[in-house]
Simulated assay, not measured.
Amino acid sequence: MTTRVTANGIDIAYESFGDPGGRPLLLIMGLGAQLIHWDEGLCELLAEQGHHVVRFDNRDAGLSTHVGGAGVPGAGTAPPYLLDDMAEDTAGLMDALGWPRAHVVGASMGGMIAQTLAIRRPERVLTLTSIMSTPGPEIAPPTAEAAAILMARPAADRDGVLEQAVRTWTMIGSPGYELDHERITTLAGLAYDRCFDPAGTGRQLAAIMASGSRVEALGRLTVPTLVLHGEADQLVPLAGGEATAAAVPGARLVTYPGMGHDLPRALWPDIVAEITKHTTA
C-alpha cells in the first residue's frame, strides 16, 4: 500500500516490505524512475533477509511532489533544486518513518543521492550501497548511443512510451541476460498510469549536472560502503563505480560481467546476498 508523508516541505510517497522491527533499509531510485522500478520481488527477497525495506518516489517522480511551476531549466539557468535537496528529502522521510539511522541503497541517480546523504548526514547512514552510479557527472559519461537514448524526445502517448521503453532498455540494459520485453512494457505502462512527467525528469537531470563532483567529500567518509556495478553499463560505465569505490576509504567494489544499467532478475540472489553481508557486517 502506498503511503504519503510530508518531509522537507514536500509530499513523499512510499511503500514498505518486511517486519517493521527488521534492519531499516531505504531504497533510492534513479533518474525519472519511480518506486515501482524497485521490483516487488527484489524488495521481498531483501525483506526475507531481515530488512524492513522502504522504496519511495523521489521529488518530480511518481506520486511525490512535482515542482511543476519551475519548468525545465535551460542552459545557464539554475535548477530549482540540487541533489543536496533530494538528500534532505530522504532524511526527512527517515524522520517521518521514525528511523534515526538506516542502511541506504541507491541506484544510478539514487546512488548519487545516497552518496550525498552520507556526506551531509553521516550519522543517519548505517551503511551505504551505491549501485551503477558515479561520484560526479563528469566521471564515466554515457556512451554516445546511451546519451542519445537519454536525451531522446519523450513519447507523446502511452503506446509510444511503451515502445520507447523497449528501445531504451534494449540499448542500456544487460547484454549478458535475456531481455524481458513483457516485464519492460508492463512496468512502463504502470509507471505511465501512475504519473507521466518528462519535465520532472528534466529537472532531476539538471540537478545532477549542477551538483558537481563528490570525490573530495567522499574521501572523508567513514560510512561502510559497498559499490555494485555492471561491467557492460553504457549509461554509467564501469569507471563510475570504480571511481566511487576509489574515493571512499575502505569501500568494497563488486562488478558483474554482462550487467548493464539495470538489475537482471538472475542477479537478484547475488545482489541481495552482497547487500545483506554488508548490512550485517
Rank of each mutant, 00 (worst) to 15 (best):
V104W: 14
L117N: 00
G68Y: 00
Q204E: 12
I139M: 10
K277S: 13
T168E: 08
T186S: 13
M29G: 09
A148I: 07
R194A: 05
L162P: 14
V223W: 10
A191S: 15
P79H: 09
T3N: 04
C43D: 12
W268P: 06
S211V: 01
D60M: 05
A147C: 01
L31F: 00
V236L: 10
L218K: 06
P79C: 00
L238I: 15
Q34L: 00
A281G: 11
S133D: 10
A239G: 04
G200H: 07
E15L: 02
P100D: 12
R194D: 10
G110D: 03
A7N: 02
T2H: 03
D60V: 07
L46P: 11
I184E: 08
S174R: 14
G212L: 09
E44Q: 15
P24F: 06
R158M: 04
I36Q: 02
M109C: 11
S213W: 11
G62P: 03
P79D: 04
M259G: 05
L263G: 00
P20N: 05
N58C: 02
A152P: 10
N8H: 12
H229W: 06
A118Y: 11
W169E: 08
G173F: 07
I184C: 05
Q204W: 04
E145W: 09
L190D: 13
D89L: 02
L221E: 06
A210G: 09
Y192A: 07
A206G: 12
L267T: 10
L238V: 15
G21S: 11
T6P: 01
V215N: 12
V72N: 06
P269Y: 04
I131P: 08
G62I: 01
G200L: 03
P24A: 01
M151P: 03
T222W: 06
A78T: 15
A188W: 08
I271Y: 11
Q234C: 01
L45W: 07
G160A: 03
G106M: 00
A210D: 15
A87D: 14
T168N: 06
G50Q: 12
H66G: 09
V223S: 11
